[in-house]
Amino acid sequence: MERSDYRTYGFVFLITAGIFVVVFWLVNTINAHKLAEVDDLQRKITVDLLATETQFDLLKTAPCDSLVEGSALSRELNEFGQKLEFAQSNQRSDDPDVEQLKKYYSLLQVKDYLLMQEISRACGLDTDAVLYFYSADCPDCTKQGYVLTEFKKRYPKVRIYSFDTDLDFSVIDTFTGIYDFEEIYPTLVIDSKVYQSFQGIEDLEALLPEAVEAQRIDDIAVEGIDFILTLEDYEGIDGEDVTFTSNKGTNYTYDLRINSEVVKVVLNYDEETETFSVDK
């Protein structure tokens, strides 16, 4: 045994301890940043929601435009939920910050839901909403979560609200009380009807036929814009100058802005060949 041996052991210990400290510091910093990001998102959503609500109160009429804007809000709300969910599953789930944020999230969702229902009633429009209740120890809930995320991607206008029933929170309890269902998860509430089993994408599409149809028309309308841009008559027109205005059967009407003049163009969509033609 030589003295230099002890020096070696100490040296190696210092390096190892150093690596440990750096790794722990790194991971904690990253996670703190992530939580801060979620926090920012939450603040933004709160402001947006409050703005809509105040507008409603102020005008005493429904700000019908906000239904369109609302889809952006609902997207943010969903992103907020997903990030929270992720933060919870990968950090210690008993983290008080995360739990607090989750409660806040639930609250925001309920508020958004109620507000949107009121606005759409006042504006005479239909908004489709899916209420999703889940629990951590439910085997199908992960799959249901994937399906709903994908569904949201395909049908962005459908509003999906998810509630963690494990969260000890009175608002959620009240909410579940209204629909009065047994504690079997996943539970979906669509149009006040309760579904207590796993619903695949096709099942959801069957339950929300109007949303599917609306999305189909929207998709065709977007393709129609591309078609107009390829027409020789309207050469040099930008995509931004074309707006879809209405749809009737297979006819899609667009407004074209050409040198500050607005021209109406009607396209006819052939569903069998999936092609457009200009309706003269």
Binding site: L26, N31, N90
Partner: peptide
């Protein structure tokens, strides 16, 4: 990148 999971164990396995 938010959804890329980072835990101590992940970093150590990479090391």
């Amino acid at each position: 990148w938010f959804f890329v999971n980072v835990t101590q164990l992940h970093v150590f396995s990479i090391i």
